[in-house]
Nucleic acid binder design. Structure first.
Lengths: 360, 360
DNA sequence: CTGAAAGCGCTTACAG
DNA sequence: CTGAAAGCGCTTACAG
């Protein structure tokens, strides 16, 4: 009945020490002196005996106990809107990898982008005494971040940025620009944006990069051609439905998220049109399904896994007292079939859309 | 410079006690006496003063320290093949919810179904002193599980079952049967299975339920009409390509996973055929995209989120010493367009496939 | 080079 | 009803 924590009887420092007839503190010192056998912590001979026995007994130090003394848990809290969003799941895989490599473990929690949940999950993480937080669901204009800063909780943002706080993000303005340039080259003049949630920098920046580029080309994008939406399939479908009511209809749609783009593709099909032929669509992120769609999706690839890894590195640098600044990773455009041969057919399309609208 | 763990200066039991002029042990006793104000732990008056101050100071007990004494961390380890698999991500959301409600926190790690990684991640979890494990990536014939049992590590399986160990799964044999009955009713006689990985009970059971039902109807499914595959889009596509080489070609395909089914749909289109019209396809799980596909996918819905919740509950019952037995949740069939009007066209299809093959 | 002590924040019998 | 002590497993100055 002595088993308590999983794994039953666990070997402790004291066990090791008494088996070798030396003091626990000596064992501790040796085990902390890095791989160079002793480094002044003990004689090479004792050090070797200790290491040997530790290995043999499968000793693994109790992080609870160590943390109690050192005040460092080697734990990171990660907050995301939802792990069932593939984009965040991939970023988390990057976090998981990097954290493991660097000796950290992570808690992940879903906030569903609800401010109350964000606060609650943050509290849970802090109650667990994490060393710091990776925040993947930051809203612009954020009281929680101010508060965390005041409380000196080390954190970095990932995925979404907020001015004034260190973050690991994609250069989303550039991403929007790439999408715009691509569509400009294809000759599109009436374009629309499915812009995501208004509280997320991702959507805002991608939209800004896109509309600024069109404006600079002398083709400003009208306000009612920019529609906010959730970042999922349903959101994209709904937004596209709205765009179908605009006149003239857009000949190209930039959705700031691949899943929203997929929803838009569905709406386009429902209207009897063919993406890539009748109307161009560009998504964002290049999730794995994008290339596998019936009509493969042109998209802006963002380095999702890398962002996760980077967030871990930045946070660790904050632990070490460094004053880290934000990093934006570069996206690239992946042209595929949904922007194949659309622009030339502009007139044709508009008349076909007019027909559709009169049927309504 | 006194800040160390995130959150800086933290209120301790001792702080509370000295502010009230009582002993820390009294404070501890009160805070542990549940919501009934004192329950013999102290006078109602002191109890109220203590609770009041604890609230005011935002006291939250240090779980490291508590765990060190009690040998219970209230931590669970969760191992999944990959969180970027939506099916597992949803299950994890169920785990996350239930664990939070019941006062537990969880670590999740990806094993990528690699036995070495499974072992490594398990070790990391145990080194973190989790109270137990939820294993979502179990392989049939599993040395690791035997070892964990020998070491008295409490664990439950989720998603995939292994005979002899407690698990929270979907009744996959039933699921396979539902798919088969549906296709039988539509009149299909030449059917095939994209069966998933051979080490996963999910694929095995779904395939067994399916083939047994067809066999019982006097229509045994030939061995070369059952093809193993990975559980993703690529795996499904490859398996379908192989099935196109069979003669007679199947008029219906059961894929044990929706993503594999989506891959099969791609292959079908590549062959110039239309799913739901020329060939029936049934998937498994009913992930959110299934209903949103150009041709919505008929599938067997599994209670993914519920499985996660259930796994948490079972594990906690194991902590309490209960001898828990496995639970299988029931799936239901969701008929959609990919099995709309296929069976009648059998002959027609077969001749069309023959034509295709001769072109190769 | 090694030992001994103190202490991290908590809990839990044991007294009284 | 409350206090005081011991101890969970570790780390870290401090001696010597």
């Amino acid at each position: 009945m002595e088993e308590s924590t999983a794994g039953g009887r666990t070997v402790t420092l004291k066990d090791l020490a008494s088996e070798l007839g030396i003091h626990p503190s000596t064992v501790s010192r040796i085990l902390h002196s890095g791989s160079d056998v002793a480094r002044g912590a003990a004689s090479v001979a004792t050090a070797e005996r200790v290491r040997e026995l530790a290995r043999k007994r499968g000793y693994s130090p109790d992080p609870q106990a160590a943390g109690l003394r050192t005040r460092r848990t080697h734990l990171m809290g990660v907050i995301v809107p939802r792990l069932s969003d593939l984009v965040l799941a991939i970023m988390y895989e990057g976090i998981d990898e990097a954290a493991a490599e660097l000796g950290y473990s992570t808690f992940v929690m879903n906030s569903r982008d609800d401010p109350e949940e964000q606060r609650r999950k943050t509290d849970t993480m802090l109650a667990r005494r994490v060393d710091g937080l990776i925040i993947g669901d930051a809203h612009l204009d954020n009281g929680l971040l101010r508060e965390l800063t005041a409380r000196k909780v080390p954190f970095v943002l990932m995925n979404r940025r907020v001015p004034g706080y260190p973050s690991a993000t994609c250069d989303d303005v550039l991403g929007g620009r790439l999408a715009a340039q691509h569509l400009l080259e294809l000759g599109h003049t009436t374009v629309a944006v499915i812009a995501g949630e208004p509280y997320a920098s991702t959507g805002i920046d991608r939209t800004a990069g896109f509309t600024e580029t069109f404006a600079a080309a002398g083709l400003p994008v009208g306000g009612d051609y920019v529609i906010h939406s959730s970042f999922d399939v349903t959101g994209g479908r709904r937004a596209a439905e709205q765009l179908f009511r605009r006149s003239p209809a857009p000949t190209a749609i930039f959705a700031v998220n691949d899943f929203a783009a997929i929803g838009a593709l569905g709406a386009i099909r429902d209207h009897g049109l063919t993406p890539g032929t009748d109307i161009a669509v560009v998504g964002y992120n290049d999730v794995s399904v994008a290339a596998e769609l019936p009509i493969p999706l042109t998209t802006v690839r963002s380095p999702m896994r890398e962002m996760g890894r980077l967030a871990v590195e930045l946070l660790i640098r904050r632990f070490e007292g460094d004053d880290v600044s934000s990093v934006r990773l570069s996206p690239i455009l992946i042209p595929r079939a949904t922007t194949d041969s659309t622009a030339k057919r502009t007139e044709q399309l508009n008349s076909s859309l007019d027909r559709q609208q009169s049927l309504r």
